[in-house]
Simulated assay, not measured.
Amino acid sequence: MADASSSGLESKPKPQVIYRCKKCRRIVAAQENIVPHERGEGELSFKWKKRSGSDWEEAADCTSIFVEPMKWMEAVEEGHVEEKLQCMGCKARLGYFNWAGMQCNCGAWINPAFQLHKSRLDECHI
C-alpha cells in the first residue's frame, strides 16, 4: 500500500487566518495566537441585570477573539493589570485586557483575557 505523499494525494495545508486593524491594516494577530474557549450558556451565564430580557436562550456568536499577550500590546508591557488595547500603528482601540479575566458575550469566562473586538478587525485568509 502506497502512502499519501507518494501517490499525489498530499493534504493541502489549511489556509492561514490573520487579523488586521481595520483602520491602518497592521497585522495584530494570527490564527495561532487565538486562545480557544468553549461556548458558555449565553445570557443564562450573566447576572439578570446584564440580560437583554428576551426569551432567547441560545448562546450568541462570539463578537470578540481572545489572544495570548503579544509584544505590540504596550499597556501589557507597561505592567498594567487591566487596560484598553490600542493598535500600535494608528492607536485605534482594538479591545481590552484584564489579567483577572473577563466574560465573553457567549457566557464563557476567559482568564487571563486579552480581548480583540471582531468589529475592529479585518479577518484575512491567506
Score class of each variant (00 low, 15 high):
I65E: 12
E68L: 03
K47H: 05
A30Y: 10
K71S: 06
G53N: 05
K50P: 01
S52A: 04
G40Y: 14
W48N: 00
V35T: 14
S64W: 13
V35S: 10
K49T: 05
P69C: 06
S52P: 04
R39S: 15
E38K: 15
K71D: 11
I65K: 15
A60Q: 08
V35Y: 05
K49C: 01
E57A: 06
N33R: 08
I65Q: 14
F66Y: 15
F66W: 09
T63H: 11
P36D: 10
K47W: 08
E68V: 10
E38M: 10
F66K: 12
E43Q: 09
Q31L: 11
A59W: 02
E57I: 09
I65M: 14
E32I: 08
S52R: 00
P36M: 10
I34R: 09
S52V: 05
R39Q: 15
F66P: 07
I34L: 13
E43Y: 00
A29T: 09
Q31N: 14
E32T: 07
S64K: 13
V28R: 05
W48V: 11
A30C: 12
V28M: 11
A60E: 10
W56K: 09
E38N: 14
S54T: 07
D55C: 02
P69V: 07
W56Y: 10
N33I: 06
E68A: 04
K50Q: 03
W72E: 05
H37Y: 15
E57M: 02
W72K: 09
E57K: 06
M70D: 02
E43N: 04
A60H: 03
E68Q: 10
E43D: 00
C62K: 05
R51I: 01
Q31H: 15
E32R: 08
E41W: 09
R51N: 05
S64M: 13
K47L: 12
S54L: 04
T63L: 12
E41Q: 13
V67D: 04
K71L: 07
R51Q: 10
E38R: 15
N33W: 15
E41P: 00
R39M: 15
F46T: 01
W48G: 02
G42P: 02
P36L: 07
C62W: 02
E58P: 01
P36G: 10
C62Q: 07
A59L: 00
F46W: 08
L44M: 10
V67G: 05
P69W: 05
K47C: 06
V67H: 01
E68R: 03
S52H: 00
G40M: 13
E43V: 01
G40C: 13
F46P: 00
H37S: 14
I34A: 06
R39E: 15
E58H: 03
F46C: 07
I34W: 01
E41V: 13
E58M: 04
A60T: 04
T63E: 14
F66E: 03
R51E: 07
V67R: 03
S45W: 03
V28E: 04
A30H: 12
W56A: 08
R51Y: 02
C62A: 14
V35G: 05
A29E: 07
E58V: 01
H37R: 13
G53Q: 00
E68S: 06
E32P: 02
V35P: 02
Q31C: 12
A59Y: 01
C62I: 08
G42I: 06
S54W: 00
F66R: 09
G42L: 05
A30N: 11
E41H: 13
M70P: 03
S54N: 02
C62N: 11
A29L: 07
S45C: 11
E43W: 01
K50I: 00
V28K: 05
A30T: 12
